[in-house]
Write a protein that binds this DNA or RNA. Structure first.
Length: 263
DNA sequence: AAGTTCCTCAACCGCAACGAA
DNA sequence: CTTCGTTGCGGTTGAGGAACT
């Protein structure tokens, strides 16, 4: 059936090498998921033989990474995520995979697509500085919504981490022979990269002991007028900073250690 | 209602980096 | 050191649906 559809749209045909191309069928997805469940990620070129898929390794990897991975987050990019994307893109440019690492559950492809459709367009629009009062109101409104969504976001992250932890443990119980990273049994924690990447994207010289110094170290290119656009980015920096006690999960040493690789 | 344009996103391609032989 | 296979990344394409005229 899929072949028929493929032929109709010019997709799904079999390449010269014998590989199928075009949209994936439910059956192909099932086979790929089964393959990963049994063999784990990697060795994509052996998928064809071992899973009975007529897809090349590249195609399988892409399908898994962008669509089938269980930890993927579905749904719209939140304003919080959007601000992270904005900030990280300002720092790293089109390094989508790097940006994606700071957004748990989002893929580089997703972020890349989002950027192209939203910010490229937005850049054109906001180039005209004459902003209508209506737009200002909307942005303010959006900011308040963002504050609420941010709280929900952290809660979701916690839950997601917790689910992942349970899943890994279940997997371990099923396959005791498989090698696996030691699992921390303590309270599930939010991915630290999520926070540290944002912090590191500012001036690495900033004084983490000075509340507010993060804000002051914003790129000079950003005018105060544009700061509203960065509202989402500056979420809770005060709170975040306050929590950087030596005993907390986000101890200063931790932050510095984690920040270093990115600077 | 029909035609056209715009938007979104899955998937492909080419290239570069990396590691093993 | 070189070659070759594999993997990951970023850019691009195109189908399909939504929005607009």
């Amino acid at each position: 059936m899929m072949m028929m559809m493929g032929e109709h749209f010019g997709w799904g045909k079999v390449a010269a090498e014998g590989w199928r191309k075009g949209p994936w069928t439910a059956e192909e997805d099932r086979l790929l998921m089964e393959y990963v469940r049994v063999h784990g990620e990697g060795r994509w070129n052996s998928v064809a033989h071992l899973a009975g898929l007529r897809r090349n390794g590249k195609s399988c990897r892409l399908r898994w990474v962008n669509y089938l991975r269980p930890d993927l987050k579905r749904g719209q990019i939140t304003p919080h995520e959007e601000s992270i994307i904005l900030e990280l893109h300002a720092r790293w440019g089109n390094r989508w995979s790097t940006i994606a690492r700071s957004l748990p559950g989002r893929t580089d492809n997703e972020i890349k697509n989002y950027w192209r459709t939203h910010f490229k367009k937005k850049a054109k629009v906001t180039s005209s500085r004459n902003e209508k009062p209506n737009a200002r109101f909307l942005r303010k409104h959006q900011y308040h919504q963002q504050q609420q969504q941010q709280q929900q976001y952290w809660e979701l992250l916690r839950q997601q981490q917790h689910r992942e932890l349970l899943r890994q443990q279940q997997q371990l119980n099923r396959q005791p022979a498989m090698k696996a990273e030691p699992i921390n049994n303590s309270q599930p924690q939010i991915r630290q990269e999520s926070c540290t990447c944002i912090i590191s994207s500012f001036n690495p010289q900033i004084d983490h002991d000075q509340p507010g110094s993060l804000l002051l170290s914003l790129p000079e290119a950003i005018s105060m007028e544009d700061h509203q656009l960065w509202d989402g980015l500056l979420w809770n920096f005060e709170d975040f900073h306050t929590n950087l006690t030596p005993n907390s999960a986000f101890g200063k040493a931790n932050v510095h250690n984690l920040v270093a690789p990115f600077c």
